[in-house]
Design a protein around this nucleic acid. Sequence first.
DNA 1: TTGTAAGCGTTATCAG
DNA 2: CTGATAACGCTTACAA
Lengths: 353, 353
Amino acid sequence: MSGTGEQGRADAPQGDAAPRRTRSGGPATIYDVADLAGVNPSTVSRALGKPGRVSAKTEARIRAAAAELDFRMNPMARALPTGRTNTLGLVVADITNPMVFGVVRGAEQAASQAGFTLVIAESQESGEAEATAIERILPGVDGIVLATTRLASDRISRLAAHKPVVLINRAVDGVPSVLPDVDTGVGDLVAHLDEHGHRTVAFLAGPTASWMSERRWAALLDAAEARGIAIVEIGPNPPTIDGGRAAYRRLRASHATAAIAYNDLMAIGVMQEAAAHGVDVPGELSVAGFDDIFGSELIVPALTTVRAQLVLAGERAVGQLLAMVGANGHDLPDDLLATTLVVRGSTGPAASA
Amino acid sequence: MSGTGEQGRADAPQGDAAPRRTRSGGPATIYDVADLAGVNPSTVSRALGKPGRVSAKTEARIRAAAAELDFRMNPMARALPTGRTNTLGLVVADITNPMVFGVVRGAEQAASQAGFTLVIAESQESGEAEATAIERILPGVDGIVLATTRLASDRISRLAAHKPVVLINRAVDGVPSVLPDVDTGVGDLVAHLDEHGHRTVAFLAGPTASWMSERRWAALLDAAEARGIAIVEIGPNPPTIDGGRAAYRRLRASHATAAIAYNDLMAIGVMQEAAAHGVDVPGELSVAGFDDIFGSELIVPALTTVRAQLVLAGERAVGQLLAMVGANGHDLPDDLLATTLVVRGSTGPAASA
DNA sequence: TTGTAAGCGTTATCAG
DNA sequence: CTGATAACGCTTACAA
């Protein structure tokens, strides 16, 4: 006999069809199946692993036995010899940020479709917490998707040297990533504002550690300069509704006629604060955001925003990862994800100064 | 030498401080640590497992060696002899439903705080897909939280006979669950409507398989009857914005002056459709929902709703689970989660018929 | 095609 | 307090 393994709560009646005659009372193993089928355990392993490695007759017998015993392979036991866990990790900064929903859904779908399990960890917008979370899930996964990382580039590189890593909305040398075509959306947005007579706009930046905030700002700067529009950066700010509200005063002080927030959450905060101050949007102030999250078209006026393909991003990221761990055959497009300007009610003609 | 284990991508320079002198080039094992510390592997296991099972001196030596080798315990290897994976599963119907965000966050926090990993699976509102998802993650977890299950009670019972299971928003005999105090919130809501002169209200039900929809309807029926208010149930409907929109026509046909939707998403759908038909809310129709999701106070008019404590629900559910797998000492309160009526702009005086 | 046996990294029993 | 050693359930050369 061995050590522990007291997982056999074989009290409750089995209910359906699971006659259970396993050695230890616990879940059936390939040994039990092998006994029942009259073959060697290794044959069971082969039959249930890759098809065709065993004769049709025996395979049928084995499958029947497995079904009768309600056998399911123990993933931990399988992971030990192979080193592959069939599990992927997804790390996000804030799981209640609607922006991540799409990513999570896309990732979960792609993963489960490939027979992989997805473990998710939240970093609460803190680099340290993120490092800890990664540390914790790392040994149990075959690869990791970092969706909104606040980690320094060198830490990411170091991580990527050990395990397959795919980044979303973040570029680090030598590490594969899924990125949106920021320039197009931003170009359209700035053109839209320009056409409506805005000559001075403000960008409400996100957190310092947000690569994407940098990137959006850079694109904005290019586009604004090209059109001779004055632009200022206000921030950094927390990428939340409250972050947007808190930045409102500085925004107004800048006398910008249009505000572009790092994300929709912040844009919503700005709009709420404007409403609280009796400032009409878009009459006295135009507001735009990024991502097009759930809620952006609910608010009044509905938010003009640069839509990102979040579900696709999640899908592609795990697709990449699966390819890196050698788990699929798909060809992965590596082009940037298209970005679209969605014009709604929160932007309009510049207030006459 | 053994079979596979080609996880050693020992090319990229180690970066920081990880002098790596492991046997196989791969991650360090307790054997490597034992070698370096000059002790037996079993001693390393003891030292790193529970404290105090080994002399202070050797423990220090072992910890130093472990640190130098950048050793982290392989959870798979550990799970094999113990049968415990230190992983919990969370199954949700629809991960993009804002209602689940809170649950996921609460669950993730409670889990990671206890050193557990959370794997999440989505069932896409389908009982079969849910069964498959559970099947897939089951062998790798110590217990499961079913957050918005569409499974039949007997399947849940059968599941619970094998692994610890905790339900959220669903009661099944013999299976622990985290439930809200529906009656209080519903009572307040109906009183609120009554005070505003509503004599006939409609309930827009959720999916057939939703226990919570049943439960809310039952509470509504009680409260309405007690006040002599006429009430009708319309449905079943998909628990989404579109589900709410689709139910709009039948709602109006009922001539109810107030609509109570199974959840906020549906309520939002109703409001959107009302707006599309030029029907004023709450002037011509009062609308209320359940949960108080993100977005409910963004929409105009803001939604009156019965708020649920979703984060707390997630926390309690994994708290329960941890207790069941013997992983903590907390005392778990098992009272119902308080529910609060949040009155906002979407409800008002009944339209004079 | 199938059986044999070694090994994956850790824990736990049993001596010493 | 610590060292051997046998599991845990599965995969995979290697033989037969």
